[in-house]
Structures are given as C-alpha cells and as structure tokens.
Design a protein around this nucleic acid. Structure first.
Lengths: 132, 132
DNA sequence: CCTTGACCTAGAGTGAACTCTAGACCTTAG
DNA sequence: CTAAGGTCTAGAGTTCACTCTAGGTCAAGG
C-alpha cells in the first residue's frame, strides 16, 4: 500500500500560492521576474505556472528575509547561488552571515529605540499625574 | 557674573545641523515642509534658517522614530501634538504606545528571523564539513 | 460548446522618503 | 567691494518594492 511515492508534493496555482504565502499574485509574478526562485517554475501546456511545496517553503524563507529588511537584490543573489547548486556554500554562508550581522544591529537599534519610547511615555504619564 | 542666561543655546545653520544629525540639508528642508518640527524655525533677516540645540535634540528623537519604522506622517502627527502645547499628553501617550507595540512586534519578528538565518548558516557549515 | 473566473504578458502607475536641479540670494573673509 | 561658498524656493527626478491595467488566453463546471 502507498507504493507510489513517499513524499506527496502537492501542486498549486499562482492564486493558491498567493493565498498561502500572503503575497499577491502580481508580486509572485514579479518575484519570478526578479529571479527570486531557485529554479525555473514549470508551466502547464497552456503556459500557466505550476508551483510545488518547495516553492511554498522557499517563499516562507523569502518572507523572513524580506521582513528583516533584506533588499530584493540580495534575495536574488541568494536565489542565484541556490540555483547554481552545491559547491558555493561559502558564498551562501557569507551572504547569510552578513545579513545576520545586519539583523543583530537592527535588533540592538530597536531595543534602544524602545527605551527612548518608554522614557517618553513615562515622562508624559508623570506630566499628566502631576496635574491631578 | 554670567547673569545673561543659565542655558547657552548654540545656534546652527542648516549645513551644521545636517552634519550633526546625519540628515542631508535637502532632507532637513523637506522635514520642515512636512511639519516635522514642533515649532517654527526662526530665520535671519535674509531668510536663512537658524536652528537651536532644541532642534538637535528633536532630530535625535526623530531619528529614533524613523529607525524604528515610524512613517513620516506619524512623526508629523506627533510634532503637531507637541507644537500644540501641554494638554494633549493622552494623545501623545496613545501615539507612543501604539509605536511601542509595533516595536515589540518588530523585535520579536527579527529574533525569529535571526533563528532561521542561524539555522541556514549551520546547515551550510555542516554541508561543507561533510565534504572534507 | 460555452461561459466564467483565474491566468498570461508587457508595460505603466503608485506611494514613501528622499534627492537633486536651476536660478536667485545671503554672508563673510580678504 | 568682491568673490566664494552656503542657503533659498519651487518643483522635478530617483529608488524601491510593489500594484495595477489592458488586452488577451486557459481551464473547469454545466
């Protein structure tokens, strides 16, 4: 029983993938044009895109990268490395480590900002309280 | 001695303020046009802007807000509240608390991203190591 | 078959936040 | 007084990351 395949890859239309990934259909097509997929997207005979679960996972990663302010150009560079296949791990590590450093800096910056904001809020609260 | 004033406010030209704040001269003029200063900037008889240390401190705050992704429109709203003077502390608190929540969300998001990136780096390191 | 809704491409348009240009004016050191 | 360099305004231009339009094509239900 269940002899066909161990991993059942589901396929998705671009509309389904949009619903799953939270990106718009327009954006997905634009992402493809920007080279943000690590392999060519197969098509139906009629020319419509067929995405696999691989694409779903890949977009989850891209969403992380974008949410941490990686420029699209850098995501494209990373996609290019993955597309090129094994052997360029050093480049991928370099790219990711550079981004990790940016991420550390962003987090530190935001924590400092939060302190400033909290001080402001405290200050206004006290100003209000002292006018009882 | 020193009878004139207890606080010696230094004045700055727009170029000096740009050097201090890290913003460009163009951006400072644009900020003023967007209503991002809590009071009118005085001018020389010839029409050139005169900034005080107050402006330096204000821009330090704006830089914090901008670095934590507050839209210019929100900074303008905050400036408007400060410009209006005492009495609207509740509004200022609401604005800042809303931003603090956004900040908390951003920080959480970035920490999650950092985990993903670190996992990726570890994965590539192991891939490289296993090819000794 | 036929309709209807999703999909296709190429390219134009949008919004945010700057960034720069042109041509005139101001300020200050010599 | 003059020259050099900073500043002025109004408005155009840029970059990024989408977002939408027009004019078609495709696929699935009835």
């Amino acid at each position: 029983m269940m002899a066909e395949a161990t991993i059942a890859e589901r396929t998705h239309t671009i509309g389904e993938l949009a619903a799953i990934s939270g990106l718009s259909v327009h954006t997905l097509r634009w992402y493809e044009a920007q080279g943000l997929f690590p392999r060519d997207i197969p098509r139906t005979p009629g020319g419509q895109r067929i995405f696999g679960d691989e694409a779903v996972r890949w977009l989850a990663l891209l969403n992380r990268l974008r949410d941490s302010a990686m420029p699209v150009a850098d995501m494209a560079e990373y996609s290019r490395l993955v597309r090129a296949g094994e052997g360029n791990e050093a480049d991928r590590i370099a790219l990711m480590e550079s981004h990790a450093r940016s991420l550390d800096a962003q987090i530190e910056e935001l924590i400092a900002c939060r302190e400033v904001i909290r001080d402001k809020i405290d200050f206004y609260r006290r100003a209000v309280a002292s006018r009882t």
